[in-house]
Design a protein around this nucleic acid. Sequence first.
DNA 1: AAATACGCTTGACTTTTATCAAGACCTACC
DNA 2: GGTAGGTCTTGATAAAAGTCAAGCGTATTT
Lengths: 191, 191
Amino acid sequence: MSIYKGILENVAKYVQLTDDEIAQFTAILKPTRIKKRQFVVQPGFVSEYRNYIVEGAVRVFYVDALGKEHTIIIAIEDWFFTDFFSYIHQTPAEYYAEALEDSLILQMKYDDVEELCGKVHSLCQYFRLYTERSMSFSYKRTVSNIGKSSEERYWEFVDKYPQIASRVPQYVLASYLGISPESLSRIRSRS
Amino acid sequence: MSIYKGILENVAKYVQLTDDEIAQFTAILKPTRIKKRQFVVQPGFVSEYRNYIVEGAVRVFYVDALGKEHTIIIAIEDWFFTDFFSYIHQTPAEYYAEALEDSLILQMKYDDVEELCGKVHSLCQYFRLYTERSMSFSYKRTVSNIGKSSEERYWEFVDKYPQIASRVPQYVLASYLGISPESLSRIRSRS
DNA sequence: AAATACGCTTGACTTTTATCAAGACCTACC
DNA sequence: GGTAGGTCTTGATAAAAGTCAAGCGTATTT
């Protein structure tokens, strides 16, 4: 079974590529194995790649002035991750991307993606549609952040992503939800 | 001066359209005047349009179970707004879009945009690139929401969007930042 | 111009959440 | 198999933010 199966199925949900286009696309995908705790992106270095997870889990986080970590993205199979701002603008990253488990990812270089999107209309469509959907989900998270209590945010997350909630360390989830680890522990303990 | 000037300049920042493509694009833009407090989108109705603001200001907000309002988007000239989830999925909206001032907007129907993006590669590129940039900014807001105090979020906003901060009512800004109006008032008063 | 509605402020109080500190548990590794 | 590191929990306390309520000033309306 090809390691491209997942990502090609993802693409197929939005657009239909010809065999030639599939070949061009997979040609820019670089399979990479990363070990738990390994960094894929680090502050100060440009996030050159848009990364797709074939197998494993990754988080993107930043460390504030007080040394506290804040998790921006938790990604598992069939998700993309990168320091999006750094990737899009090709400027030095501010965040870390760290493997939460041994993982297999597909890396696509910014320049390659841009070149291919310039040539292949369907692929451009794919990324447009995919990003628009990501955007609509991003607003949902914002709604949660500005309008809900810590407790509500936690249970909402568990409800939406039960597999992730049980798969990542609690302190990571806490930092994703904007809650201190102690408070999250208490939220869980009161039923 | 054409009312399309702003949006075409916006497009031109990302891609170059031929005269014919420009004509096709402007053909799907429906100029609409809306009065202060008028709703462009309402819960229960599909948000058919992606809206571009030529002149004026609009906010997108939702009302929670307790009747409290939470502002998801504050948009002024040269910004797009809509209930993004409703628009993308063409399902009934959950949010309101309300004019904060008398405004002039350009409305483009979902179907028209999709059809044109299917035909015109450059326009597809434009929306892809624009949305990717929006996405990278959306992450910044998330970072702010999960990692910063109310006070920090307020001053960050004032620093980033001074024109908006002085243009919209304080309670709107408070609901955008996820702060109660009273707390925002106090934050401002302590210097 | 008076009446009204709205937005903002301020005070007193409550609730939520963070912080600091200690300890328990577990797992991995020498 | 013991030690170390990392994770989670619990308690005591502090800080941040929300709530409720009253009042003030300024637009807006009639």
